[in-house]
């Protein structure tokens, strides 16, 4: 607890110092160190129970850290909770909207708690509702909404007071692909404007949205970097997939002598090695008398990265 809480030191929007939280004997978050730059969109990726929500809850001052601390725009989460609450917006995992209030009333409530004046509140809610395609539902009670609409409203509620830092806990959990896309597009538009910390257990979501990804497992950050860096670091080997007719044993043996792993099943050849020369491989196969119908280098996914690091899949 020796870290400075100088509010002027705002190079990093979010910073944690050995942030730890236990529930009885379970260590949910285990000494994580994060530095998230201003305007960055950072995704915490991990399976359910990895400690992502506990991390967010500590940063939003809903949970006390067992040890360690963190700062939001320079304010200490242990000491300056109410300062922090003025500059953050949170969209929790459970959509958490007042069900018998209509869209506008929900926005007004959050706006008034933040002491936003009525005119500004009206302007901002119109703007946000428009952007999220909810303008026509402004007067409808929330309990009639679909999951996707509630999720969009939840994000608007987190933005209504124009916060500097935005926390989105599983923003597309349980939504159909179309609704997910809509949410993603909106989040992409916020990039650079706000510092965003997002949690997800969807690889594609982190891949698509985040500037940087922190992979979390059992309370620890096990890998950290841009999606590209993570894939490159974690998967030194590349895999090339070739579909061809008339593959003969001679060319297969030749490949085996040149590359680490070669397997052939029913006209599909998989070649895996740290270095692959695409041109050379295609030429060699063609000159052996076989005909290549398609060939590509398989891109590693964050799924592969997670599997590689933790030895288990992301989905339960």
């Amino acid at each position: 607890m020796t870290q400075s809480t100088n509010a002027k030191d705002k190079a990093f929007a979010i910073q944690t110092y050995q942030l730890t939280r236990s529930f009885n004997s379970l260590v949910a978050v285990d000494g994580i160190e994060l530095k998230i730059k201003r305007g960055e969109l950072f995704a915490l990726l991990g399976p359910n129970g990895a400690g992502k929500t506990t991390t967010i809850n500590m940063l939003c001052c809903l949970l006390k850290p067992t040890s360690g601390t963190g700062t939001i725009m320079g304010y200490d989460i242990n000491k300056q909770a109410f300062k922090i609450k003025e500059i953050i917006g949170v969209s929790p995992q459970e959509t958490s909207i007042s069900e018998h209030l209509n869209t506008q009333e929900n926005l007004d409530l959050i706006g008034r708690i933040h002491n936003i004046d009525a005119r500004e509140l009206k302007r901002r809610s119109q703007e946000l509702l428009e952007a999220m395609g909810l303008t026509e539902r402004a007067k409808d009670q929330v309990r009639k909404f679909s999951g996707g609409m509630k999720r969009r409203l939840s994000i608007i509620m987190a933005l209504i007071h124009n916060p500097e830092v935005l926390f989105l806990d599983e923003p597309s959990l349980g939504l159909d692909p179309q609704a997910r896309r809509a949410i993603w597009e909106y989040i992409v538009n916020l990039k650079g404007e706000k510092t965003i910390l997002l949690t997800t257990h969807y690889m594609d979501e982190a891949d698509f949205l985040a500037d940087r990804v922190g992979i979390m497992d059992e309370g620890k950050i096990v890998a950290l970097g841009t999606s590209r860096e993570l894939k490159a670091d974690m998967l030194e080997k590349h895999t090339m997939v070739i579909d061809a007719w008339n593959l003969n044993q001679k060319v297969i043996d030749k490949m085996r002598s040149k590359y680490a792993e070669v397997s052939v099943t029913e006209g599909t050849m998989l070649i895996t090695d740290s270095q692959l020369d695409f041109r050379e491989i295609v030429d060699l196969i063609q000159s052996s008398g076989a005909t290549v119908s398609s060939a590509y280098i398989k891109e590693p996914t964050l799924d592969d990265v997670f599997l590689h690091i933790t030895g288990k899949g992301l989905r339960e």
Partner: peptide, 10 residues
């Protein structure tokens, strides 16, 4: 969870 949301406000 609505109270949790409100608890992230000032």
């Amino acid at each position: 969870g609505f109270l949790s949301r409100l608890l992230t406000t000032p």
